[in-house]
Design a protein around this nucleic acid. Structure first.
Lengths: 125, 125
DNA sequence: AACCTTATTAGCTAAATAGCTAACTTATTT
DNA sequence: AAATAAGTTAGCTATTTAGCTAATAAGGTT
């Protein structure tokens, strides 16, 4: 279970548009790491990308993107793995699954409490 | 459906500990508006609270809490309604339901894509 | 009418954030 | 060995943020 501090980090990480876009594209496979074509020996998740490939998609400097990726990593939204020269980035789906559960639990409990209190369901508005 | 801008506002709103605690307690009914006891005529959701009641639970000034509540309102996480002297705050469960759906959709799509690509399910790790 | 209660607005400060360039480290290629 | 590529670190600046107090507005209450 994510504790409050972890959740705060996740919310903060996703509250910046640049980081949100990186997150989005890492999770949906929006970026492919162009150099992998010439490095067929590197074994890596096909959805994985690397820092400079991400940076190619933004009008921000590499250090800026690198710092954003670090923050996403520290929020446990993505994982990184260094292979040779490059740092590969993979989505951390477990964390997202937990976020989905948190919100869903909140909704379910809210509806149950409401039903208990009012004796009807929320959907009958 | 929440667009990116709305999501960014929600993440930002929930990324601050004080706002997160207000959010938590508004949604779980952690605060009761003490003065409602002597104002039985006011018709209000029993989970509702008001700005100064929230502020009683923090070591921050009323203006600070008021500003935080404003930000939660602008992120559509809570609704406010002025009745007489007071501003009543209610949780906006629909927004939370949408957040749960967003995250769940991301997880589901991720798993489906993975299954399509690898021909197995994620749970078999 | 005068006063209290509730909340917001305005204006301030310290700290955090998001961007940058330059310098550096570590692999890889030539 | 020298050059190139990929990332990170350090140090800087402008902007935003989160807190505060004082002042104001608008409903109650006495």
């Amino acid at each position: 279970m994510l504790d409050m501090d972890q959740k705060l980090k996740i919310f903060k990480a996703l509250s910046n548009q640049t980081r949100f876009m990186i997150f989005k594209n890492v999770f949906t496979g929006g970026y492919t790491c162009s150099l992998d074509k010439v490095q067929p020996g590197v074994k890596v998740n096909p959805i994985a990308t690397c820092v400079s490939t991400v940076a190619e998609h933004f009008n921000f400097s590499l250090p800026t993107i690198s710092a954003h990726i670090k923050e996403l990593k520290e929020a446990n939204i993505i994982s990184v793995e260094k292979k040779g020269n490059k740092v590969y980035i993979e989505p951390n789906i477990e964390t997202i699954r937990e976020m989905a559960e948190c919100f869903q639990t909140l909704v379910t409990n809210f509806d149950n409490n409401r039903e208990l209190f009012f004796g009807d369901s929320l959907s009958v508005k």
